[in-house]
């Protein structure tokens, strides 16, 4: 008798979960949209809380066909530390690049390096490319068609291997941890 009721409860849960997902396909996206709406209006007034919540629910629902894969974040701690590292590196990058720009241009050694990617998640790759462009003297230029190689231009590259190792250790490893665990 008891087992029977538990099974019906489980069955009910299993059938409500997909329906819940159908009505709220991207909870994370909804949360971000709500936050952005409140920041745009720079207010916490009840009217905007409600309006923002409605928009945050409606927009992902109407555009869900544009978002084939679900975004999930398994390791928020790693993500937070990653954001901290990147912000610090941006600060350092600016000082380093400012100094390089003011040096005589003849002394700069520009160059391209190719990074063999281990990360496979599309969002992870785009975040990695973004991060590379924001940090010390590097701009990501091209992703190969099979998404295995990223071409990076450096403003002043003295040791190509060291540059590649740094990017892989500092940025690719944590991004891989965050996205590959889905």
């Amino acid at each position: 008798m008891k087992r029977g009721t538990r099974q019906t409860v489980e069955k009910a849960n299993a059938s409500t979960l997909p329906r819940w997902k159908k009505w709220l396909p991207h909870p994370l996206l909804s949360l971000v949209l709500w936050g952005v709406w409140l920041l745009l209006n720079n207010t916490l007034a009840p009217g905007h809380l409600v309006l923002g919540a409605i928009l945050a629910w409606l927009i992902p629902l109407l555009t869900s066909s544009f978002w084939p894969e679900k975004v999930c974040l398994r390791r928020p701690g790693v993500l937070l530390r990653f954001i901290g590292v990147v912000l610090w590196d941006i600060l350092v990058a600016n000082v380093v690049v400012a100094r390089l720009i003011l040096l005589p241009s003849k002394r700069l050694q520009p160059g391209f390096v190719t990074i063999e990617l281990d990360i496979r998640h599309p969002l992870g790759i785009s975040l990695l490319a973004n991060t590379i462009s924001l940090t010390p003297g590097t701009v990501s230029c091209d992703l190969s068609a099979d998404r295995r190689q990223l071409l990076v231009h450096g403003l002043h590259i003295t040791d190509a291997h060291q540059t590649i190792d740094e990017i892989k250790q500092r940025y690719e490893r944590p991004l891989q941890e965050i996205f590959e665990s889905c």
Binding site: I90, N94, I101, S105, L134, V139, C141, H153, L155
Partner: peptide, 19 residues
């Protein structure tokens, strides 16, 4: 001041972030 297109890209992408 930087001599070629790729190097010139570095100026604005970095300066905008901290500036």
């Amino acid at each position: 001041k930087l001599p070629d297109f790729y190097m010139r890209l570095h100026g604005p992408t970095k300066a905008t972030t901290l500036g």
